[in-house]
């Protein structure tokens, strides 16, 4: 554990909590992609199956459980409790366009051809692209609520901090996991355009709107 990883984990946790609180407080999930949230729930489910097979630390298990519970809670709020506020006609990205190719890739490129390892690889690849329905939704409506943009910034920062962590671990421990690194870089690159808009607009007090 190093400071970059800890900050990355906390940033990830912050993102998840911002989104949950936003939905709970406003009693609305307008502007949030339910597809992305389903994909994140699937990411956590397939990645954290090792909760049952491997114990690493209390911190590790507790964070995994919190991520899992929060992501299912978000999906529940969106599709059941506050379903009336869900903007489904703007959330039109087809999940199978991500899940099917990513599933195929996980079968072909992995560290070890075992069920748990393939599911872990699947979750790493899927996480890299799971935000696309959300970004697609914002590009369709042309804007995002400020709180939604804070959520996206925290979520994007998490993987960017992990990249710094991987560089650090490579030099200090000689540890590297090429699958996680490549997917993590792809994931971070997908947020770059958003980071630019966030810094140039949201941090100056304006709402996030896309240039016409």
């Amino acid at each position: 554990m190093n400071i970059f990883r800890l900050l990355g984990d906390l940033s990830h946790l912050l993102a998840i909590i911002i989104l949950l609180l936003k939905i709970w407080r406003t009693r609305s999930c307008a502007g949030v992609s339910g597809k992305s949230q389903i994909l994140f729930a699937l990411v956590f489910t397939t990645r954290y199956l090792d909760l049952f097979t491997n114990f690493i630390s209390m911190y590790n298990s507790a964070m995994k459980l919190i991520y899992l519970v929060c992501s299912y809670a978000t999906v529940f709020l969106m599709y059941f409790k506050f379903k009336a506020t869900y903007d489904s006609n703007h959330d039109t990205f087809r999940m199978e366009f991500l899940v099917v190719p990513v599933g195929g890739l996980a079968f072909l490129v992995n560290h070890d051809f075992t069920p748990l390892e393939i599911l872990w690889t699947f979750s790493i690849y899927l996480e890299a692209v799971a935000i696309l329905p959300q970004l697609f939704m914002i590009s369709k409506t042309g804007e995002a609520e400020t709180i939604t943009s804070h959520y996206l910034f925290a979520l994007g920062s998490y993987r960017a901090l992990y990249i710094v962590n991987w560089v650090f671990r490579f030099y200090t421990e000689g540890f590297f996991d090429l699958i996680a690194i490549v997917a993590g870089c792809v994931q971070t690159i997908l947020y770059c355009d958003f980071f630019y808009l966030y810094i140039t607009k949201v941090l100056k007090g304006k709402q996030l709107t896309l240039p016409a």
């Binding site: 090792d50 097979t53 560290h111 070890d112 075992t114 748990l116 540890f175």
Partner: peptide, 10 residues
């Protein structure tokens, strides 16, 4: 390189 099955990162 990561040990398959035992991942310490989240």
């Amino acid at each position: 390189r990561a040990k398959p099955g035992g991942k310490d990162e989240l």
